[in-house]
């Protein structure tokens, strides 16, 4: 497998990076970097970590010698530690408070509980700003536990960007992927259709019953996409050969409408990308324009209700007039 870290790969411009990944041969991993400067979204770092975990021969790691200033960042965010790579960098570890959450592998509920507890002080934010962040992390990581069948758990990282006052979060797994998870209950043709279903409220891979099971309502991802939508931020989901990207809602568009069909949102979709075995999710949460979570819940309630009514109506038997 080969991966090249470009100068910049954030959710808005992640497409060329995804196109460039060479995932075919998992007997080795080769990582190269833009020589001048590398600045990437945490989803990218989590994806590299996931590729490394799925690399068969761990002695086949090739990392281009780094001359850029970014190497200190990679060291501190824990990329080299995950890769088991001695970068030779000797840096004084600063307190990461308020800046980033290093790449972490979470394998079970207890680890998730501890991670959330430890993470909160690092963010140095007010409770009303921390709540959606905790919410997003809990739901995404639990999705990995419950649906991905990943042996290596959830790989997570987050970074705070002071200039844009934004938290960027990546959660990645190398499990069965969305299509296989959803296919347990629905006939799905393509990865992009599977992503669409996964983001639709009330649909879960565990049942075809509207409203879900005792454990899954099929609402978690819809909530997360809605948090991004209401805050006019990016949300990306990549699984199999497909990627869905919720684009930023322009500020000039005053009224935010949540759609139960994610394709009705302002979004971009891509297929025939290099096949990602598992699921990678990235989300940005700008803390400036943070919408009150309560208001978001009002919108979600309305949309969820409407969607269930529409779905039930579709199943109504129609009288045959002959």
């Amino acid at each position: 497998m080969k991966i090249h870290l470009p100068n910049s790969a954030f959710l808005g411009n992640i497409d060329p990076f995804l196109d460039s990944i060479d995932i075919d041969d998992n007997s080795s991993l080769e990582i190269t970097f833009n020589e001048k400067w590398v600045s990437v979204h945490p989803i990218v770092l989590c994806m590299i970590s996931a590729l490394w975990l799925s690399t068969k021969n761990k002695s086949n790691l090739k990392i281009q010698t780094l001359e850029t200033k970014s190497k200190n960042y990679f060291e501190r965010i824990g990329l080299f530690k995950i890769l088991g790579y001695d970068s030779g960098i000797n840096i004084v570890e600063h307190d990461p408070s308020g800046r980033f959450i290093p790449i972490t592998i979470i394998k079970n509920s207890d680890e998730l509980n501890n991670f959330i507890k430890d993470m909160i002080p690092l963010l140095h934010q007010e409770p009303e700003q921390v709540n959606p962040i905790k919410y997003v992390i809990s739901e995404l990581v639990r999705n990995v536990f419950e649906h991905s069948k990943s042996n290596s758990g959830a790989i997570i990282s987050a970074q705070y960007y002071k200039k844009s006052n934004t938290i960027r979060i990546g959660v990645v797994d190398n499990g069965i992927g969305i299509k296989e998870a959803i296919s347990k209950s629905y006939n799905i043709e393509s990865d992009i259709d599977a992503i669409k279903m996964a983001l639709t409220p009330g649909i879960t891979g565990t049942t075809t019953n509207i409203g879900g099971t005792e454990f899954n309502a099929g609402a978690g991802l819809f909530f997360i996409k809605s948090i991004a939508k209401v805050n006019r931020d990016f949300f990306v989901m990549y699984s199999g050969d497909a990627m869905y990207k919720l684009l930023r809602t322009p500020v000039k568009k005053k009224k935010i409408i949540l759609y139960s069909d994610p394709f009705n949102d302002r979004c971009s979709k891509k297929e025939k990308l290099p096949y990602w075995q598992g699921t990678a999710v990235g989300i940005d949460i700008c803390l400036d324009k943070h919408q009150i979570f309560d208001q978001l819940l009002d919108l979600i309630k309305k949309t969820y209700r409407k969607n269930i009514k529409e779905k039930k109506k579709k199943r109504f038997k129609k009288p045959r007039f002959i």
């Binding site: 509207i210 819940l297 309630k301 039930k312």
Partner: peptide
Amino acid sequence: NDTIKKLITIVTDYMQEEEPT
């Protein structure tokens, strides 16, 4: 609190709109 009240209402609402099994 208000947030938890709203979340509980979302769950009780959609459960009442669910198809009976």
